[in-house]
């Protein structure tokens, strides 16, 4: 591990790749790495890109990246694709839309499969981002799965969220509307050379206005990613959003909230695991679960009984020594 961290600190991409692989597979070694204080930097600007399928997210991320790379920034890209629930396999196809990044030394791309996680990201995403941040990336772009519904996970990870849509996906926008206003800091109408682009912009404008006055009013951009058009303006607003976050104190606040959220979610999963282990060890509890399974006992009472029992046992252990 020392060797790995040593070469990691020397900015050796091979060691970064190896470390990410550990983290992706949530190995014991990866937990040791993530505990290190040098892995709590919080410096990178984390940009989430979400949107429905076919909106050209990957191409857009690729072009943004190319532009950012010319600004002498170090960039990490995390692309997420769905895992097949049947075979557990995944085809990770985002990278092919970013072929022109292959020769850029300051761009590092990691493709992740969701591995059963439903919120639009892989469950390891936050950890992956943490490692990329520790590697002193200036910008980390996260591309969500994009399967249609709103993918809220990205809100918990990113500082700036882009919602990408395309003309003609008006219906999709409507269905997204319920949660759309809360999700995005910047809207992008990609493939804006297609008919209906201006209407989409108008619709979005209306929706943004309806959502009430806010300190940061989400701008709406038209891009044609395949032709590099509108990218400069988009980058400009992403930078502006970062400045706004810093100025308003949100930059720090978001990070703090994120830290606490991560703590709580870890506590949650840890507890769940411990409770399950305990039930499996204690025959009387196991029997209760069996009864619920058969429908002979109700889950409301039983859940209270189990938790009460565990806490009581834990307290007696504490006080009784």
């Amino acid at each position: 591990m020392e060797d790995l961290i040593g070469s990691f600190e020397k900015k050796d991409n091979v060691s970064l790749g190896k470390m990410l692989k550990e983290v992706e597979n949530q190995t014991p070694l990866s937990l040791e790495i993530l505990k290190l204080s040098s892995f709590r930097k919080g410096k990178a600007h984390i940009i989430g890109v979400t949107g429905p399928p076919g909106s050209g997210k990957s191409t857009l991320v690729g072009k943004m990246c190319k532009k950012l790379a010319t600004m002498d920034l170090r960039i990490g890209v995390v692309c997420v694709d769905p895992t097949s629930p049947f075979t557990k396999g995944a085809l990770l196809g985002d990278r092919i839309r970013m072929q022109e990044l292959a020769k850029l030394p300051n761009v590092f791309i990691k493709s992740l499969a969701t591995r059963g996680n439903l919120g639009g990201l892989a469950s390891s995403t936050a950890d992956i981002v943490q490692v990329l941040d520790a590697y002193e990336m200036d910008v980390i772009l996260i591309e969500t799965v994009g399967v249609g519904q709103i993918e809220f996970d990205v809100l918990g990870v990113a500082d700036t969220v882009l919602l990408v849509s395309v003309p003609g996906l008006g219906d999709t926008l409507q269905t997204l509307k319920a949660g759309i206003m809360e999700i995005a800091d910047i809207y992008v109408i990609n493939q804006a050379d297609r008919p209906g682009a201006d209407e989409s912009v108008k619709d979005l404008n209306l929706m943004v206005k309806e959502s009430g006055k806010r300190e940061w009013s989400p701008p709406i951009h038209k891009t044609v990613a395949t032709q590099d058009s509108g990218i400069d303006e988009l980058i400009h607003d992403i930078t502006a959003h970062k400045k706004y976050l810093e100025r308003s104190g949100l930059w720090k606040e978001k990070r703090q909230t994120r830290n606490v959220t991560r703590l709580y979610s870890m506590i949650e999963s840890l507890l769940a695991q411990r409770v399950e282990d305990h039930i499996n060890r204690e025959e009387s509890l196991k029997a209760k679960v069996q009864d619920v399974m058969k429908g002979e006992r109700d889950p409301y009472t039983t859940s209270h009984e189990i938790v009460d029992r565990l806490i009581a046992k834990h307290n007696s252990y504490q006080y009784g020594g």
Binding site: T83, S84, T87, K88, G89, A90, L91, L92, R95, S111, A113
Partner: peptide
């Protein structure tokens, strides 16, 4: 992928 692997 159908065999359960992750393919980039």
């Amino acid at each position: 992928r159908d065999e359960g692997m992750e393919v980039v």
